[in-house]
Each structure stands twice: as structure tokens, then as C-alpha cells.
Amino acid sequence: MVDIARETIERAARNDMAAFKEIYQAASPFVYSLALRIVPNSADAQEVTQDVFIKIYHHLSSFRFSSAFKTWIYRITVNTAINYHRKYAKEKQRRVNNEHVLDLASSSSSSDEKALQGDHEAQLNMLLGSLTLEHRACIVLREIEGLNYQQMASALSIPVNTVRSRLKRARQALLQAARKESPYELR
């Protein structure tokens, strides 16, 4: 995520829409990309992104500058995406099962879903899909966003040791899944 100036945050907290849009432009690729890896499709990821930014806007005035703004956004995003997934996964699955035949016939997918299907990323997403939501969030924050253990602990509200054990389990699972994918490449 690109850095966001303190002055911009302060202006946005005073309901300056232009400043808030600056924050959106800096943070939305991260928010949307993380959401895309946690919820099942781009429509859901868009809804999560909207939700996250509306929350950010309404809580900007309560944001104290002793904390890192980016970490705060990471946290809101992870919580919102995981809660959204938990809330809607079952309900959506039921609907998907019912509409399965219809979906196969129309098979329309948005540009994002097509982008996700780009061979490399599609493969990676399939691997990520084999992880629990918590492990997935951990791996994305570390491998894609490049957070260190302290930053991750703070973004996920968990102790550093839990960060460590989640990363270890996630990586073990990914190695295992990769072996299944290409058993001859990785012994």
C-alpha cells in the first residue's frame, strides 16, 4: 500500500471528500485485492471494499495518530472480509447449488474473475483456497504486502507467536498442495 500523508488523513477526518478520495486511491487496490483472496468472487470483493471504506470514513475522527494508519486499514479489511465470508458463504453456497445449471449455461464472469484465472494467479489462488481464512490472511499480509511479524500481529490482533505458528502451518499446507499439483517438480 502506498503511504498516506498525515495531513491527508486529517483533512479527510474533517469530511474533505477530495482527501478521502486520495486515501481511497492509495488503499483500495490493497483492500480489493485482499478481499478477492478471501471472499469467493469479485462482486463480493467489491461489496467488502465498499464496506471497508464506509467504515474508514465514519471512524476517521476516532483514529488517533499514535497508531499506524495502514495497520488500521489492514485490520479493518481483514476483519470485514473474514466476517463477510463467514456470514454469506453458507447462504451463497446454497444459492450457487440451486443455480448451478443456470450458471454453467451463461458462464459469465467479470474481468476480474478472468484476471484471476490468468494461469499463474489462478494456480496461486487455488493453492490459497486450500488454506483456512486466517492462514490465507496471514500469508497475503506477509508475502504480498510484505508486513513483518510485529506489523502482522498488530494488523490481525494476535500475538507474534500466533503469527509465527499460522505462517508455519500455512506454508506447510501450501507446500503440500503444491506437491499434489506437480508431484514430480517438488519431489
Binding site: 483500495s28 487496490p29 483492500v31 485485492s33 467489491q46 465498499q50 464506509i54 470514513y57 504480498i144
Partner: peptide, 22 residues
């Protein structure tokens, strides 16, 4: 494998929806 991933930008409509909601 992870280092080759680039972030996705949300569709323009998302900002519009946020703006309207606020």
C-alpha cells in the same frame, strides 16, 4: 510465486457507491 502477483484495482463503480453512501 507470490512475488509475481500484482494488485487489482476495483471498478470505478465502487468509489461511486462509497461516495453516494457517505
Amino acid at each position: 510465486a507470490f512475488s509475481q502477483i500484482t494488485p487489482h484495482t476495483p471498478p470505478v463503480q465502487v468509489w461511486q457507491n462509497i461516495h453516494d453512501a457517505i
